Simulated assay, not measured.
Amino acid sequence: MGNREIISKLRVTFGAKLRSINAGILSRWILYFQSQPLAVSQKSAMVFSPHQDDETLGCGGTIALKRSLGVPVQVVFLTDGRYGRPEWIQPERITDIRQQEAVDALQILGVANSEIHFLNQIDNSLQNLPNDQRQDLVTRLAQHLQSFMPEEVYVPHKKDFHDDHEATYKLVQEAIALSGIQTELLQYPIWMFWQNPLSFSLKFEDVADARRLAISAVIDRKKRAIETYRSQHPGLPSGFLERFFLPYEIFFKD
């Protein structure tokens, strides 16, 4: 390995370490100093997930708690996740593998297959959909909302620093307006805290009105569900998953 390759690798390692430290500090500051406690409710919930694993990382404990109380929960996956592929999986197999991982993870959390919906949009396309495709997707999302009538809706944070995640927030907002239903919107962070502190762009208002939900009673189930996503672990930065093993989940009121 040449000097340039060594320097490049060191930069990547240092950058990941910096982001890991920043994410740990910020998430714990919000958890213990900037958030209000949130009790698990009996309200039915629909979780919108850009990719197969976001729902478990961001809401796995919440889903498990609600299902343990017999509360109806449905999960809607917007994309097919085709680009979340390690080298050892053939391109033509990844979407089927990710769907099966999602079904297995949600089974652990208590969600039946009949309550899981795959919309199969192309991964990494949500931000730039042509107008007709975008409107068609909003209509499909609205139909799911009208069919289930959830009292709570969970979406990625509007500033989650991932194009598909931020687009999911906007698409679901439009779908709620189109559906005409009354529901409570809660945002869950996945990549929001994973930023280089030297170029940090979050503002205080972006993390205001934070809520923390204690998930100690189901943390083992959440961990097992996360472990089900074996295809995704090799592509995640070192230290990224640590926050999702904490006994709390963070949400932001819209």
Rank of each mutant, 00 (worst) to 15 (best):
V40Y: 05
F204V: 14
E249P: 13
P72W: 10
G60H: 03
Y169I: 06
R67E: 11
D164Q: 08
V76Q: 00
A16D: 04
F33A: 14
V111S: 01
F148R: 11
A39W: 02
V73D: 06
H144N: 09
Q187M: 13
A210D: 05
T228V: 09
L18T: 12
Y32C: 02
E55W: 00
M1Y: 13
R82S: 08
L213N: 06
L65D: 09
L178F: 14
T79S: 07
E115Y: 05
L18Q: 13
I226H: 06
L171A: 08
Y154T: 04
L38S: 04
F77W: 05
E55K: 02
Q173H: 15
V155P: 00
N128K: 12
L69E: 15
L171W: 02
I122T: 12
S41P: 01
V76Y: 06
E249K: 07
V71L: 08
G180E: 02
H157I: 04
R243H: 09
Q121A: 12
N124R: 11
E227G: 08
R4P: 07
S44A: 10
R140N: 13
F148M: 07
A45T: 12
A23K: 00
E92Y: 03
L141E: 02
G235I: 05
P86D: 04
V12E: 10
N128M: 10
E227R: 15
Q107Y: 09
S238G: 10
M46N: 06
F240T: 11
H165Y: 11
V12W: 15
R211D: 04
R243W: 14
L26S: 06
L141Q: 07
A208R: 15
K222C: 06
A45M: 15
A225Y: 00
L141G: 07
L18M: 13
R98C: 00
Y154V: 04
E152T: 13
Y169S: 06
I6R: 13
Y32E: 09
Q143N: 14
Q135N: 15
C59V: 13
T13Y: 07
D163C: 06
Q36L: 08
I21Y: 14
L178G: 04
P247G: 01
V172I: 09
E249N: 08
F193V: 03
D220F: 05
F33W: 12
A210Q: 03
F240K: 12
H233V: 12
F240C: 03
A64G: 04
N124M: 10
A208E: 14
R211M: 10
R211P: 14
L106H: 01
E92P: 03
V218F: 04
M192C: 07
R28F: 09
E152W: 07
A16L: 14
I25W: 10
T168N: 01
L109E: 05
G2K: 02
D206T: 09
A105S: 04
S199M: 05
T139Q: 15
L57R: 03
Q74A: 11
I116L: 03
H144E: 02
K253L: 12
P156W: 02
N3K: 12
D123Y: 00
F252I: 05
